[in-house]
Nucleic acid binder design. Structure first.
Ligand SMILES: [Mn+2]
Ligand SMILES: [Mn+2]
Ligand SMILES: [Zn+2]
Ligand SMILES: [Zn+2]
Lengths: 136, 136
DNA sequence: CTGACAATGAGAAAGGTTTTCATTTAGTAT
DNA sequence: ATACTAAATGAAAACCTTTCTCATTGTCAG
């Protein structure tokens, strides 16, 4: 019962919120654009407006339920937040997204921010390339 | 005489291209948006259309004369390519951009791409934070 | 069960970037 | 120098993703 997740996040329990959460949980691909979620809702028979999908995803982000990645400018994808920070590899051919974690890089980033006098608030690391399948 | 740079890049020598190149070379801040370049041209008395600025910057990018960074929030900035790869720190308060190079991170990225079977084509690393001036 | 306030849907608007198309221009051939 | 052809330009419209507006509907505390 994910109603609890919503209440815990201080959000009223509404059908759009429950359904968006359900899509995020049940869709095989972990990284979905607002449009992807919208289409999945339509395919499921739920007529939820795209504006609502955007609003809900933003609220979920604010509540820490999902995280947003900003791909190549002007196009975001969302994924359920699982508490473990990770970065991404993106295939420029098929748009596959893979995840990785690297503590060496994380540590170097902290060191660089400190060197430059920056109080780091966030970071984004994307490795672009051609995935194994697409190389054949 | 930057006409040679343009010819070398296979681009016809036109006034808009020469002027955009001049702005990129002479402006104190290294990272400029298309709008920044457009305004600088106006200030210089050149009436060059914004569409042309975008076209020229994209052509320069394709020619390897400039590189484009896609800042979080749908808005790109361009800088003259100097052959030395570097990544960026961005102040979320004042939009200051600082540069850094870190061979440890570069190497780890190559290792991660290899591990995942990706043929790396590019990567983007942005560290967001509050710069020293903005912390006061 | 009611009422107050929040959430939703539809469409308009925003903001950055790209495209269209008529006109002008650069580079090459004459 | 002149003429020609393909490429470049400017202005405006189109685009695309995301946000906003506002009338309507729904949630949930009382
Ligand atoms: Mn992820
Ligand atoms: Mn730079
Ligand atoms: Zn691929
Ligand atoms: Zn700052």
């Amino acid at each position: 019962m994910e109603s609890q997740d919503l209440r815990k996040a201080g959000l009223k329990v509404t059908l759009p919120r429950l359904k968006v959460l359900e899509i995020l949980e049940k869709t095989e691909q972990r990284h979905l654009s607002a449009e992807d979620v919208y289409k999945a809702l339509l395919a499921m028979g739920e007529e939820i407006g795209l504006a609502t999908v955007y609003r809900v995803l933003t609220q979920f982000e604010d509540a820490g339920l999902v995280s947003r990645l900003s791909i190549d400018g002007g196009h975001a994808v969302f994924e359920l937040e699982d508490g473990t920070h990770h970065d991404h590899l993106l295939c420029v051919r098929c748009n596959r997204i893979e995840e990785f974690t690297d503590e060496v890089i994380e540590e170097r980033q902290r060191a660089i921010a400190a060197e430059k006098g920056f109080e780091m608030t966030d970071h984004a690391l994307y490795i672009y390339g051609i995935c194994q399948q697409c190389q054949k």
